[in-house]
Amino acid sequence: MNSIKTSSRFKREWPLYAMISVPALLVLIYYYGPMFGVVMAFQKFEPALGFLRSKFVGLGNFERLFKLPDIWEVVRNTLFIASMKIIVETIAAILVAILLNEIQRKKFKRTVQTIIYAPYFLSWVILGGIFRDILAADGLVNNLLTAVGMESYNFLGQPKTFPWVLILTETWQLTGFNAIVYLAAIANIDPNLYEAAAIDGAGRLKQTWYVTIPGMSSYIVVMLILNLGYILNAGLDQILMLYSSVVYSTGDVIDTWVYRAGLQNAQYSLASAVGLLRSIVSLIMVAGSYYIAYKKFDYRVF
């Protein structure tokens, strides 16, 4: 390449470099900085000494970590809550999309959509405030239970059922919004398929089972695969709002554990060691799931 060509190329391209330099610098500091910062997982990290001068301890933090009695419980809770959320939320969203599609009155359909999408946009501070109120001992739900002669129930204080409170409240929040993708999937199904099925004598139920659901299947699989990438993400915001030490045995997850150990108890290195393991597993899961979605279903983000 001769120098004239290079310089004219630069003359044209420099504004692109100028534009991208600012966001790239911020990404470098606040995304890549912490990636470099994971060295603290291998140090006896002291904030005053920083990443460069803290004492290096090799795998010491990881050895300590695996000896902690509650760490496996935390991992198990995370996997259980996250996978149940994926399963319950996916089924609920598919069901709602199919039923929503059957509504013939346009106006009613639109009103329903407006209402059921709304909870998605409220933060877990607001939703947590609401659920803490209505699930309390003297809250709306328990008042209803006692009114029909049942015993009141400590929804947020029973370790046995607490994960299900998390799963069901999140399903409540997200189902309407999650249904949008599946509605789009149904809209893409070739109407001729329904007519052919009808000619073959299939009723509505059979049409749903043999046309609608197979027609959605690639969307369902892609969504499941993509969700699988976030299997270690059990919902930090929600859990921080709803849990308490009484339900740690079933409700404490990796993210809440890292938050408490690292930022409340100043166990910086131990917490970042857990965080590093979480990030590595996530990297494998997310990259793997996107790869599968791309290879098998031609799904691409860009």
């Binding site: 990404v27 500091i29 606040y30 995304y31 890549y32 900085g33 912490p34 990636m35 470099f36 910062g37 994971v38 603290m40 904030p47 990443f51 993210d255 890292v258 938050y259 690292g262 930022l263 910086y268 917490a271 970042s272 965080g275 590093l276 979480r278 990030s279 996530s282 990297l283 997310v286 990259a287």
Partner: peptide, 15 residues
């Protein structure tokens, strides 16, 4: 950055 992150604690330290 969508695939990998340093995690909560190192991010806090950078901030």
């Amino acid at each position: 950055t969508l695939l990998f992150s340093g995690g909560m604690i190192p991010t806090y330290m950078i901030v």
